[in-house]
Amino acid sequence: MTAPPRLFLNLFDDAAIFPPGNLGVPEAVQAHRERRSSPLAPLLGPFICSLPRWAELAGTLAGGSPLALALTLPGGTGDVGAAIAHAREEPRVDLVALEVPSSAEGLDDLVTMVDGQVPAAVQTYVELPWADVTAAQVATLTRTGLRLKIRTGGVVATAFPDEPGLAGVLTAAVRGGLAFKLTAGLHDPIRHRDRATGFEHHGFLNVLLATARALDGADVGTVAAALADQDGARVAHAVAGIDDAQAGRIRHHFVSFGTCSTTEPVEGLLHHGLLPEDLR
């Protein structure tokens, strides 16, 4: 079995229970475990669940290895203590990440809360509105060992950052030494307009390439141009030219993205010749 390229290892966090997938928790956990035993396992990140659905999740767990879990906290900072307590009491779960929404004004309180309650082995992603990300916030997150989460899609057009907006976030994160993850709207490798909604979706290959441009010291305009490219063959060719060392630097920053379908991005990579055929 041929190993997948380093650039794509653990790239796809499994958000199958979230819209628009909306798979039931039992079905989603079963499918995730099956993929963990398949050739696609190296591409997968953790299973993502929200804290309000903890009881559903716990009710589906059985034997086998503990489920690597990223837990989203829609209640914000106030949910941190409950999340850690649940995870400590459930040996069938390996809590690897928390994803906590915040605002610029609430960031200091979140930093204090995380520092006092979250074990060092658990990565904390702070979800900020993309338009509010500043160099100062990036510096705070980097200094305190936190990571950034940015929403790149949703059910309304305004949920999708435009190319210059997302380019500004990526450039600030790279220049500030900050790791980040993205979520929503990134099923397809290449930027495109959705035929059903008319929304412009970012492509995850574009984001990888844009991160590479930022690492090369490019300005925001050049990073935005990488995000805007809708020529799949050209983007795939550029991504195929990324060597192993550069892939490591890119993924140090762009850790993963949440997707309600791991099948679609894998099929996209196969379509563009970026994964070995024996992973099909």
Rank of each mutant, 00 (worst) to 15 (best):
A212T: 15
I250W: 09
T211I: 08
V235Q: 07
G248V: 02
D244I: 13
K181W: 06
D229I: 03
E200R: 14
I190L: 05
A210P: 09
F257G: 09
L205T: 04
A245F: 02
D243K: 01
A226D: 10
D244L: 12
H192W: 00
F180N: 12
R195Y: 08
T259H: 09
V207P: 10
A218S: 15
S256A: 15
G248A: 13
H252A: 15
N206E: 05
T197R: 05
D219G: 11
S261Q: 01
A247V: 06
T259C: 13
G221D: 13
L209T: 11
G241C: 02
G203Q: 10
G217C: 09
G217S: 05
P189K: 02
A218H: 12
V235G: 09
L208Q: 05
R249C: 07
D231Y: 07
L186K: 07
D194M: 00
A210R: 14
A212P: 07
A214Y: 05
H192P: 00
C260M: 02
A196E: 12
I190C: 08
R213G: 12
Q246E: 15
G198E: 00
R213I: 02
P189L: 00
A210L: 11
T211Y: 10
L209N: 10
A247W: 03
I242C: 06
A233F: 05
S261A: 03
G185T: 04
L215R: 12
A238D: 10
G221Y: 01
A228W: 10
R193C: 00
R213W: 13
T222F: 05
H192Q: 09
V207I: 15
E200Y: 08
G248M: 04
F257H: 05
D194P: 01
F257Q: 07
H202K: 12
H201W: 01
R191M: 05
F254G: 01
A226M: 05
G217Q: 04
A240E: 11
F257D: 03
G232R: 04
L209S: 10
R234G: 07
H187V: 01
A247G: 07
V207L: 14
G217I: 08
H202E: 03
G258Q: 04
A226V: 06
L208F: 04
I242G: 10
I190P: 02
S261T: 08
D188G: 14
R251V: 04
A196L: 15
A233K: 11
V223P: 10
D216G: 14
F254V: 03
L182G: 13
D244G: 04
P189F: 03
T197Q: 00
S261M: 01
I250L: 09
